[in-house]
Design a protein around this nucleic acid. Structure first.
Lengths: 232, 232
DNA sequence: CGAGATTTTGAGAGCCTTCAAAGGCGGTGG
DNA sequence: CCACCGCCTTTGAAGGCTCTCAAAATCTCG
């Protein structure tokens, strides 16, 4: 993203001194728990979700290595979201005071965190527009593209084929659909030759058409970071 | 929110040196325009929205005095959202470099901006969950509660009755519904004695029931700001 | 190999949309 | 001051997208 100075590097590394592992399916933070630490995700993929009182679940975001978790601990006394491991994971917990110190000592890191916030915000608003104004097929296609692109950021070997790592129920909870309907949409995408499936593996057989069907924008691309403050 | 030192105050005031007025309905930023300045909203209410290529619009957020606008200019070369005035407005434009300077000189303001980001993020995820997993009536009720609460933050005189300032079409674009269905939901809320309407004015006649119907959480309440860095 | 989770498929129902048109309201010009 | 016009609200009817319910098929893992 942007080159860090040695002192910035070591400041970030101090956030990652301790480690904690989670099994697939394990819960790191439960909704409404009193907030405590924040985390950096070091290995694996996770998700955040909320439970509504009609019993349904909405998945808010998928998390990948390098993402900061539970940042809302900065602000709220009770966790607004549940954070769950989709695969075996390693996270590094740190205290709010550590965040506070980093902001004071390293304004450029503060700026980078704001950049990160804005990217996340853009991704959230894309999902919002998708849920509000696009049909089921587009929403499912968008999730597939998002997952592939984020997975590819950590593993350059990934091309048009990848292991999704989500159940159809989870895709449904992320897109506001039922698992049954997700299944039908996947089948339709397959019949239209936009994707191919075998096991948990998805292949994009017509990425351009899929991207169009999904209305997809990669929010990690086309950044403009020229404004960042000088490093200290 | 948190007391500011005189030097912090003057730093923020420097962001508000210039002023620009907008008429009701006017556009401050258009989606895909090259990004330039950022703004502080000083007076009036605004909204951000995106247009999808099926022609429909999704309203992402409503903006009130004190909110920062076009923060995505920090990150993207093209504006991801349109920003429009719902009422006559006054905004104060400032440059990205000014933001950069504030972050460097005033870590506590940097921290407060992050707090603000987190609140906005929580509000967005609430909307996401509403669009994905709640029926139309709840979504409309939630918008009503959100607007009343935000309006009340700037005008303590507002109680259970207020002027909404949105057309039913706009409510629809915010909730992912059609104007026609919004109309029916409003009528239903009225028939159930949760609200009363006359002209553009809404009155909450059973706020508790409305809040329950809406699944509403006030994200500006119950903040915990004890961790903020020392002021300089 | 068996149990539970996940995927797949079918049929019917319901929520919300689309299409259409009438009624209100405020503003503008004569 | 009134008529007219555009925008917004309201209402009805029909249709479609997605859900619910149900059950069979397949997969995963102990």
């Amino acid at each position: 993203m942007a080159a860090l100075t040695p002192s910035e590097h070591s400041a970030l590394e101090r956030l990652e001194e301790r480690e904690r592992s989670l099994r697939r399916g394990g819960t790191l933070v439960r909704e409404n728990d009193p907030t405590g630490e924040m985390f950096v995700l070091c290995k694996g993929t996770m998700m955040t979700s909320v439970l509504l009182d009609n019993g349904s679940r909405q998945i808010l975001r998928f998390l990948f290595p390098g993402d900061m978790l539970a940042v809302s601990s900065l602000v709220y006394r009770k966790a607004p979201e549940t954070i769950t491991a989709l695969t075996d994971c390693v996270v590094c917990p740190f205290e709010r005071s550590a965040m506070s110190k980093v902001l004071s000592d390293h304004p450029r890191i503060a700026a980078l965190i704001m950049v990160y916030n804005q990217i996340e915000r853009a991704a959230l608003t894309d999902r919002l527009a998708a849920l509000g104004r696009t049909p089921a097929k587009a929403r499912v296609a968008a999730i597939l593209m998002e997952m592939r692109n984020r997975l590819r950021m950590m593993d350059k070997a990934i091309g048009t084929s990848f292991v999704l790592g989500l159940t159809q129920e989870e895709i449904g909870d992320a897109t506001g659909l039922t698992a049954v309907h997700v299944n039908r949409m996947l089948r339709q995408l397959e019949e239209e030759k936009l994707i191919a499936r075998e096991g948990g593996r998805i292949a994009f057989t017509n990425e351009q058409a899929l991207s169009r069907a999904a209305n997809y924008v990669d929010r990690y691309a086309n950044l403009d970071l020229g404004w960042l403050p000088e490093s200290r």
